[in-house]
Design a protein around this nucleic acid. Structure first.
Lengths: 356, 356
DNA sequence: TCGACTTTTGTAATCGATTACATCTTGCGA
DNA sequence: TCGCAAGATGTAATCGATTACAAAAGTCGA
């Protein structure tokens, strides 16, 4: 099978265009980057030469000379997580608009992969960094801050005075989740955790506990199942739940996936949702609207989060950062759907409130 | 609030290291890229200087000189689609291993966004291109081929002698889907389409029709609902299905999302799955294992697809392409789960076969 | 110790743009 | 028409690495 060769295009340099137009390379460069600076006649001459030769500047040479790469590194724990994918979309929207490209750093939940992206930052392949990780990646010797590049933390906060955080109000939302369940009359709670070492999980659990206290309960009134941010964590929690004699009736899951896994598993054992147990998730992924019953959950403004994070980063890159832009905390929306309901229990005290 | 400045790191150039080690820049460069070429003593001297100065080569300068960017552009129709996200993971695995970076081109289902990535290719910001689009992006004037860069089509084939295709055997799988349904005794079929203009959809529908014929049926024996690769398409198909007097009993959806949307909607109207209608999906996304009932579907080897595509691209970039590597067609796996079953209809002819 | 040959290292050109500075044009008032 | 300022364009340095070629150092046998 004979194939055409794919490398046959001769590369046109700025000098070729200059020769074609009968001007110097400096003039060509000016026409392309500072339009007002050249006479109309020369401008047209050059543009015609550009058009005819099909010239496109070699961006590597531009980067070297201008010391701007027009690329941003986005480091995410796992790309197949729909939450991060959606945030990335928001980031992409904002950056593309400003002419920036995205280099992705997918850790795939393996921390050993982060070293590569530290080196990438240190070798100046990007102008700025967006971290969705909640921590600062390092390569054994040095961490990303040493690149001297602007960094913005998004989704998960990083406690560092030099790094702005663009996050959601997780803790408040988790507190509200408990209050909502309590308002429906629930008195025994369950908490399905995410990855315990992650900042996000710590924030959410903290909010959950605040909610427990605020509603007048104590640590004796809830059970906590550990896991990670995946479906199977919910399944495992359900297994444990099913063996309990005195089951909780109000379950809060730190992400929608585990909420969905939980519901799936308990329903297999004829536990009714929400009659026997109410479940509330977190994230508001699209699937959550296609489960049976549809999942009550807090919707994160993911796309907005991505845009806002990228916007802050661009301001840093351009040195247009104003103090009031520094930290952004976006609110969440409670989507009241069908996996939560009033307690139908003998000791139900009719405390139902319609909203919180 | 006073913040530390983030740009304070002085940049170390190769000349600094050379001075520190008392050698020339050429020697430093050789130590770093051709280890065997310098004497041990000089080598150690240089390495010590590198270590002490924390030198990392400026990759932009390297790119300019060597004319290799070590980056690959990956253009995908939509990043939040779990299918593409998973493929991207495979691509990432393979490329990272070889030291390549990924620049993502997310079209977000809007074709006008492709121009940007054509320019990116033409300005030589990458060494190769992976297209998950099924077509060759253009910017109004020129298309990506004119970059002269190696291109590989993945997921969706592109008919062009210069472009290798790394795809799955969609058509065969779709044919098998119909045969499977027919084997369960179904005689009236439904087809829920994906985006009609996409190659993927055309392949799948083609396979579906082949299956219909192979099983001895005609175009009178199926109904086709048009849509795109999203949940709501399934919901819309269900609405149509529900109004029919003589409903099909064997439904094939061109993607899992629309299968799930369909099932969700018909169950709301007390249509039983699989007793009243069997549904088979396509893709094998993770969520398909958490629906009720769990979805019967064809699992695409997505991760493998990504790796294989990246592997072919790397071979092209390195000029190691052998003709037998050119086209790759990976098989799919039928996951027999709970949304398909034998027809419980009066005219059921007991044709059930356990596998196909 | 000398010379021929090999190995190691250095010098300077190069990749392809941008841009500081120098030089040449143009426009305009006297 | 001349002179001078403002505007347009050209020359060449520069960004920071790699690498062809030249030069120096080392090796070894006679």
């Amino acid at each position: 099978m004979s194939r055409k060769r794919w490398r046959s295009v001769k590369e046109i340099r700025i000098a070729d265009v200059a020769r074609l137009a009968g001007v110097s390379t400096a003039t060509v460069s000016r026409v392309l980057s500072e339009p007002g600076k050249v006479r109309q006649k020369t401008h047209d001459l050059v543009m015609e030469a550009v058009r005819r030769s099909g010239y496109i500047p070699n961006s590597t040479a531009q980067k070297l000379r201008t010391r701007r790469t027009m690329n941003v590194l986005v480091v995410a724990p796992r790309l197949t997580n729909p939450v991060f994918a959606e945030v990335l979309r928001g980031v992409d929207d904002e950056l593309t608009q400003s002419g920036y490209g995205i280099i992705i750093g997918n850790l795939d939940n393996r921390r050993e992969r982060e070293a590569r992206y530290v080196d990438l930052a240190l070798s100046r392949q990007v102008d700025g960094i967006l971290l969705l990780t909640g921590y600062i990646p390092e390569n054994g010797t040095r961490d990303m801050r040493e690149s001297g590049l602007p960094i913005v933390a998004i989704c998960a906060a990083i406690e560092d005075d030099t790094i702005p955080n663009v996050v959601v109000q997780d803790r408040e939302a988790c507190r509200r989740a408990v209050e909502y369940l309590a308002g429906l009359g629930h008195r025994r709670f369950g908490y399905i955790s995410g990855t315990p070492s992650s900042i996000i999980e710590r924030e959410r659990f903290q909010g959950f506990r605040e909610g427990i206290e605020a509603a007048g309960f104590s640590h004796n009134d809830y059970v906590r199942w550990e896991g990670t941010f995946v479906f199977s964590t919910g399944v495992a929690a359900a297994e444990s739940f099913l063996t309990m004699k005195d089951r909780p009736t109000g379950i809060f899951a730190a992400c929608d996936e585990s909420a969905i896994g939980f519901i799936k598993r308990v329903r297999e054992e004829r536990v009714r949702v929400p009659q026997d147990v109410s479940v509330i998730g977190f994230d508001g992924i699209e699937f959550a609207d296609y489960t049976e019953p549809t999942l009550t959950t807090f919707r994160q403004p993911l796309h907005e989060l991505g845009r806002a994070g990228a916007d802050v980063l661009l301001k840093l890159i351009r040195n247009q950062m104003k103090p009031e832009d520094w930290d952004v905390r976006l609110p969440l929306t409670l989507l009241e759907r069908d996996t939560t309901g009033p307690v139908l229990h003998k000791d139900y005290k009719s405390l139902r409130r319609s909203t919180i």
